[in-house]
Amino acid sequence: MFDYQFLIEVLVGGLLSGVMYSLVAIGFVVIYKTSGVLNFAQGAMLLFAALTFVSLVERGVALPLALLATLAIMVALGVAVERTVLRPLVNQPPITLFMATLGLSYVIEGAAQLLWGTQVHGLDIGISDVPLDIVGVFISRFDLFAAAVAGSLVALFALFFRTTRTGLSFRAVADDPFAALAVGLRLPRVWAIVWTVAGIVALVAGLLWGARLGVQFSLSLVVLKALPVLVLGGFDSIAGAIVGGLLIGAIEKLAEVYVGPLVGGGIEAWAGYVVALVFLLVRPSGLFGQKLVERV
């Protein structure tokens, strides 16, 4: 007798943890959309933000103040990255920029731990992880909260991109950097803002992930969870990041529960990659990514 209730629980659990993946993936998409950079340092930024916040709180800084200070530091980081890394590498091939962000991730990870130490910090954001019973299906309260946060963040971004002047200029840059330049948009400023936005996303994701895993070095590895999500959803689509995250989250959990026992378990580490890869071979530009017609 197949246990459908259990299946639904696994599925919902997977979808909700997928939301957490989406949250990380969105940080990538925001930067990729506007500057064509796959920012591998997103995970390091997440670690840096969470570590900074926790360390400030542990040193007795009031919560709102710590949040503001961390935000300010992330803004400074975004501007610094634009100045020292992106601007000198403008017009370089995307893969060069990618490798530069690999270097950047090493710098940020090193700096974060040199500044704040390497010990594991607990982070309590006041949400108990007691499961919620919804018509017989147990759902993690924390996961629901995370999903709500992710959802509102996405809504906020959508509003920002559609209505504000800055948001419009982002979309212009994403569409055609040269045309955007020609009508007088200042790319460096746009990039600095974009990296700041990515920093904010990193902060939110860092706090949520940190609350779950503890704030420590391995936090920066969640970037590895976000990559298959991006491959699946396309690097340049926020909707893709969300749907991709949900899919990967659900597939990972289902695979672990139903396929894992057959091969010895622990397949979560690569199940997402295999799914994304197989999908890619069928549709090379992802679910929502723009199909590029190669011009020769």
């Binding site: 995307p94 893969i95 491959v231 010895g264 580490a269 890869l277 890619l280 090379p284």
Partner: peptide, 26 residues
Amino acid sequence: LRLRGFYLAVSTLAAQFFVQWALTKF
């Protein structure tokens, strides 16, 4: 054969995780 740039880089990560997993698991 079908993927380029980042997409390929990401797919090589699959090799990394899969091999490490297989060597640990079996």
